[in-house]
Amino acid sequence: SSQQPPPPPPLEDLFTTLNRHIQSSAFDNAVKLTDQILAIAPEDEDALRCKVVALIKNDRVEDALSAIRSSPRTLDDFHFLKAYCLYRQNKLDEALESLQRQERNDETMLLESQILYRLGKMDACLDIYQKLQKSKIDSLEINVIAAHVMGGRSSAVQGLLDSL
């Protein structure tokens, strides 16, 4: 037909507005903006990632999972984000499975340690904390102590506290 629909707003305008919503933690509005961007550019990596992160930050974990599953593209860190959502839903085995498809780094190891903790696998959990020790992660000692206590190693806690 000869009738043209009105042109969509330029992507850069939409990203500018999206950024404003992110900066002010207006995550519902941020999600709406990402939907507008994805309606124009369905495979836009930045928009896809922003959408998933905004949903997670808004505690909409189920919606974040749907967004990941229905995404036309698999982004580098989608397995990590998916694993995090599954962890929040207490689907721990699925979460570990998803995490194993992601390249290991500090973030994936932190999440893995939290999943192992919930699974009661304290030895494996403490192994990861050993590896994370040199990364100097804020407040990590709180989780390390918890894993020691739950792993029946309360006697090691005093030494740990002394070394802080």
């Binding site: 850069e12 500018t16 930045d46 905004a54 939290q114 989780n143 918890a146 206590v149």
Partner: peptide, 24 residues
């Protein structure tokens, strides 16, 4: 009581940098 565990993985979930996608 179970000891406290923090969700530190949450801090690793960050928005990508979209500065370059914005209006200059």
């Amino acid at each position: 009581r179970n000891p406290i565990v923090l969700d530190l993985a949450y801090n690793g979930i960050e928005f990508p940098s979209i500065e370059s996608r914005m209006k200059k």
